[in-house]
Design a protein around this nucleic acid. Structure first.
Lengths: 233, 233
DNA sequence: TATTTGCAAAATCTCAAAATTTCAGGAATG
DNA sequence: CATTCCTGAAATTTTGAGATTTTGCAAATA
């Protein structure tokens, strides 16, 4: 038996890792049998997922996995750049050594997996889950020292949708060498406390899979919230 | 009788306009009678509201209106500055005359209501609903020409939570004259296409009620997404 | 007096079925 | 031939009740 929140998390995991084809209808009756629960419980989970954009909901017409969309992919990338640049710069200012250590650790794990992928000739295969998790953890840690819960929560929502959009287009898994190099460069810039370099490298890294490069409005100098973090104690 | 989405929207409206005291428990049984529907339908609406942060949900312990929190207030203000600055600068670049016209119109309405408030000696009273709506519309229009749906959606979620936090502390309704002046200055800077001025004035305006002023990381030069908007056609 | 224990009342969560709405395809109409 | 209308089937949404868990409060203990 599964509780409502368990089902919500399980479905979210599958939606962000290619468990459902884009555009597919999500029928409560089917999922009900799979989770061995009531149709109502499924409905509650799907409604929650719809408020964060991972499923589309239409009254009296049920639930659907969002279609692939280049423009949505671009929008989500734009949002990631905006949020990760801000979060990373604030982390540099306020995260302290503890944050630097966490980021180093996250990069080390990611780098290890990336190497294994490269050694197997770019074949991701069974490492894909490990890699996905490590990459998400690196990017989350990057903004983890900023002291702003809302920023982290918002980023996570955006990131999930980004992953959902990326998953079958599998562009993510093309430029392995560049990927490894870019993660390293972001780490170095962060440890150097060089905010401008961090911004630039995050932007390069995130827009690497887009058809058209992105001119950025927010690549700027001063982050926003030293005083906020002090308050948030 | 009410449908699920109707209930969701109705509750959201009340949650963002002081309809429930902070920290109050939201009992499905009570709401059930009010909407004349089943407890389950209420539960679905409350679960959805919990995913956007307007109600807190704990398993087996029901639903609660979030408590007032200075640090949350600061975080939400920070997010608003980040999103509105980016959205406004992109709008300046891509909104065209149509956007400028919409912004002018929104400001005109807001300005009219603000004047009426000032004339009645700062007593907001029955105008509060009109004023709230007009202010929200102005700030939404400000970022409305940016061409990024995700940015608008994200901003709306943040804005709702901001309003919920602000509502009973009613600091919003203190500095009427400054408020009027600040809206005008944002409008002027936008029509002048002066991005730096827009950023600065948005930041001043949004942080006006905070105890401590906010140093900003993202107050920068170049927005991000000309190419995105072109794609999004 | 302060803390813990136990029980009853109330609330939450899940379920299966009824009520409502949409969908697909064939017949009737222009 | 294209369009509209109808009808049965399938899917969605709501309901009310049962099972489980939490909460409030008084009694007991230290």
């Amino acid at each position: 038996m599964s509780t409502e929140t368990t089902i919500y998390l399980n479905l979210r995991q599958r939606l962000t890792s290619g468990g459902f084809p884009h555009g597919e209808k999500l029928r409560p009756e089917i999922l009900r049998k799979e989770f061995n629960c009531s149709a109502n419980t499924i409905r509650e989970a799907l409604l929650r997922l719809s408020t964060v954009g991972l499923v589309e909901f239409q009254e009296q017409r049920g639930f659907r996995v969002p279609e692939l969309s280049d423009s949505l992919q671009h929008e989500l990338t734009h949002m990631r750049i905006l949020l990760e640049c801000e979060g990373a710069c604030l982390s540099i200012r306020q995260g302290g050594v503890a944050w630097e250590a966490r980021l180093s650790a996250a990069h080390h794990k990611l780098s290890h997996i990336e190497s294994r992928v490269r050694l197997s000739g770019g074949e991701v295969g069974p490492l894909i889950t490990l890699w996905s998790t490590a990459e998400q953890e690196f990017h989350e840690t990057l903004i983890d020292g900023c002291g702003l819960d809302v920023l982290r929560q918002t980023h996570l929502v955006v990131y999930h949708r980004f992953r959902q959009q990326l998953i079958t287009s599998d562009r993510e898994f093309i430029y392995i060498p560049e990927n490894i190099e870019q993660h390293k460069m972001i780490l170095d810039a962060a440890l150097d406390r060089d905010e401008d370099a961090v911004r630039e490298r995050i932007q390069d890294h995130l827009s690497r899979n887009l058809m058209h490069p992105l001119p950025i409005a927010t690549a700027s100098k001063k982050p926003l919230a030293k005083s906020i973090a002090n308050l948030a104690t």
